[in-house]
Design a protein around this nucleic acid. Structure first.
Lengths: 270, 270
DNA sequence: GAGTGGTCTAGACCACTGT
DNA sequence: CAGTGGTCTAGACCACTCC
């Protein structure tokens, strides 16, 4: 539990930050508007510069403001939200049985990360590594058994900022039937992961996705070009085949200020 | 974009926070362990107290540490994660057709918020209000048409902390056939929202859930009893009936440090 | 060049934690 | 009680923005 002062008066930085937050929520300060300058804050609330700064830091941490260096911080403009729907999984499965020239329109990167490759730089790395305790338990294999580890990262070549990131694991034994799957040079694969699994006779029955959120570290913030106060959405996904075996595990991160995760749950008819 | 200093050297607070973060990630500092005292930090990194404090604030903001008042902050212990699975929706639908004594085991609060009522205090408020622009568009009704607004809040009576929260909207026209649905006194309803809709002849076909995350405000943090650096997961859910009409919209928040949202996507068989 | 906020130092008071 | 970190003041330097 967060330590809270038990003083009769609330801390000044909290009072200031809340006052300004309320002005933002009321719409008196709109996205893009500048906050009062630090000096004005200190005058209006009669506090020292450092307390005023602390209030600004609090607002930043709540994701309400951005910018500031050299000019007053501004009320944060919400970036365009990109929706990433679970319907992709079903569409990808349908596409697997199409001829290659149809499939070719979508590679693993697009279907797994939900972004287009246009004007982005894709880094792919393939490794064969021991599964380790955690993965082994999920896959029902031994910890020393090998898994194929595939890491994808998309960067904006201009800013260098990360736009998408994911890492996935497949037990090596499952894909020995098609050695081409072990070669990163074949990326992007026409049709995505489901088609790759299809080439070794695996049909998927469902995806199980666990969603959590956490604050990025300072280096993560820099990598993604994130404002302070923006969480990362984390998806841990298991792909289950028609025999109820987990055949792929993947992790992916998404910046919460520009990502909306959509999940559709169909209900059986009465 | 976060302002970054362009000085040749990185800011001390960042250097200190990163050094300690790396020690945590390496396992040299384990959950529950105490950080070095502020004085030790200032000695080791030869900085002023305020810079050391700023580093601690950064770690707090990243959700890595907690506590502190009167003693050194400790590496955060991850609370037990509660998984909230989309399978609930399917199970609830199956239960709707059961006799009442079977249904009675689950009320709206449990099924919609995923928690048990045992030892928790439930606050319910029902209102009939105009839909407004946003809801009207979703429901396909007029902005002045009325909707039933149901707000649920679960609190721990001991600490007073909020444990669950949700608000849901249903067009009034849909439920006029059963006036009992407008009465908050009937909570908890045996069988949840799906059964309530069943009493006015509505069968649900699917749920569409949009997940985002954002940082809580300072008052939200206090309400939920959240540590600094813990995001809130926000679910915006639409219930769609068999005629493809949106019949219920709901919003719910969950603390990200103790909640895992699970979504199962079934794939059609070839 | 004037004004801005980010970072830093030095020193103080207070509430809280332990013994 | 001594030690701790949270909050606060006062004052300084710097990089950045805008004119």
């Amino acid at each position: 539990m967060e330590p809270q002062p038990t003083t009769v008066e609330r801390p000044k930085q909290l009072q200031i930050a809340d006052d300004i937050r309320i002005r933002i929520e009321r719409g008196e300060l709109r996205p893009g508007d500048s906050l009062p300058t630090l000096q004005e804050i200190c005058r209006q609330w009669s506090c020292s510069m450092n307390s005023g700064r602390a209030a600004i830091t609090l607002l930043r941490e709540q994701g309400l403001i951005s910018g500031g260096r050299g000019k007053a911080p501004t009320v944060r403009m919400t970036p365009r939200m990109v929706t990433r729907s679970s319907e992709r999984h079903r569409e990808e499965k349908l596409r697997v049985l199409l001829p290659e020239d149809e499939r070719r329109k979508l590679g693993v990167a697009e279907t797994d990360m939900g972004t287009s490759l246009d004007e982005l730089r894709l880094s792919v790395s393939y490794d064969v590594v021991p599964a380790g305790e955690e993965l082994a338990e999920q896959f029902g294999i031994g910890p020393a058994d090998e898994v194929l580890r595939r890491a994808y990262e998309l960067n904006d070549p201009e800013s260098g900022r990360r736009e998408a990131w994911s890492v996935s694991f497949i037990p090596r034994d499952l894909i020995v039937g098609n050695p081409a799957l072990l070669d990163a040079e074949n990326e992007p694969w026409p049709g995505g992961t489901q088609h790759q699994l299809h080439t070794v006779g695996i049909e998927l029955a469902r995806f199980i996705e666990d969603v959590t959120a956490q604050m990025p570290t300072t280096v993560d913030r820099q990598r993604w070009g994130l404002d302070r106060g923006v969480p990362l959405l984390r998806i841990r996904r298991a792909a289950v085949d028609v025999h109820d075996h987990v055949v792929e595990l993947s992790n992916a991160d998404f910046p919460a200020d520009r990502t909306r995760l959509q999940f559709v749950t169909d209900l059986p008819r009465w």
